[in-house]
């Protein structure tokens, strides 16, 4: 289960056990519960999932003036959402797999569960294609790197090649299309994802290759970044990610020397919408411009 869906499940549970008598009280309880969840996980999607659900609760309160009825409705919808979400990756898979045809070479960046669902679906549909996968360093944990994708694709029987992040431009010639996941989808249709996504998108654009994003709609967030700095607050610079650089630096300098070398290792970057061709969500296939439309539906 995706962390964000679990978070929505948890908030639904908060509503169920809540003794709040008014909407205001309930809202307050949900907000503090969201804070706890957001603190616990630094996944962006947990934050966006919590925000979406809180927003949903506020909207519903307008539709159902009777508090008890409203509470019942919210619990039902929350549970229904958790149930439906299990199928959303499949749904995205079936929408996106149609874009993969026989003989194509697909580039993916690192590891994304949604992207893997898309590729699995294409394999199931009997498509024969090969995949290039970037390492997507730094290695924050074992499940987020390209080698995890490579292993899984190997298992699925898809010809797969692991390449350095710095080799993306070199291999772009052979690539027919690029698929990436997203940790967050922002208001203007851009995405926040594992660092390196931005440069892959720029190279894809320069070479005229389509760049597609596959992600669930709970990753939609109300954020309008204009540059990389604007997402700085959202993404924590992980110590683990500098560890990955550290090991290499050890070779060139003494302990004392390399303490002087400054290191920077952001874990995520922001890809502006102009580099994205389409986004595949369980709401349908969206152009980046359509993302703000979906968000407007939600907030107004």
């Amino acid at each position: 289960m995706a962390a964000a869906v679990a978070a929505v499940g948890a908030l639904t549970e908060v509503i169920r056990v809540s003794r709040a008598q008014t909407m205001m009280q309930l809202e307050k309880e949900l907000k503090s519960a969201s804070e706890v969840l957001k603190d616990y996980s630094d996944a962006l999607s947990v934050a966006s999932g919590c925000d979406l659900f809180t927003r949903f609760v506020l909207r519903a309160s307008g539709d159902y003036p009777n508090f008890d009825e409203c509470k019942k409705k919210l619990i039902a919808k929350g549970q229904e959402y958790v149930k439906i979400s299990e199928t959303s990756r499949n749904k995205i898979g079936s929408l996106a797999a149609a874009f993969i045809r026989d003989g194509m070479t697909v580039l993916i960046h690192g590891y994304s569960r949604v992207v893997m669902a898309v590729l699995a679906r294409a394999v199931n549909d009997g498509k024969r294609f090969s995949v290039y996968v970037t390492e997507a360093r730094p290695k924050v944990d074992d499940t987020t790197t390209g080698s995890a994708s490579a292993a899984k694709l190997q298992e699925m029987g898809v010809p797969v090649t692991l390449v350095l992040d710095s080799a993306v431009a070199y291999i772009m010639d052979h690539i027919d299309l690029v698929f990436v996941g997203a940790e967050g989808i922002v208001e203007n249709g851009g995405i926040i994802n594992k660092v390196g996504t931005y440069q892959v998108s720029i190279i894809a654009k320069a070479c005229g290759k389509p760049f597609y994003v596959a992600a669930e709609s709970f990753k939609f967030m109300r954020l309008y970044p204009l540059n990389q700095k604007d997402i700085g607050k959202m993404t924590k610079d992980s110590k683990r990610s500098t560890d990955d650089m550290w090991s290499q630096k050890r070779e060139i300098a003494s302990e004392e020397e390399h303490n002087k070398i400054k290191m920077e290792s952001p874990s995520q970057d922001y890809t502006p919408p102009r580099y994205i061709n389409l986004l595949f969500t369980e709401l349908g296939v969206l152009t980046p411009a359509a993302v703000s439309d979906e968000l407007i539906k939600l907030h107004y």
Binding site: L52, R55, R59, K77, Y81, E282
Partner: peptide, 13 residues
Amino acid sequence: EKKEGMYSFMLGP
């Protein structure tokens, strides 16, 4: 047709 938007967002179109 009231507020389909929000619900479609949570529960699919």
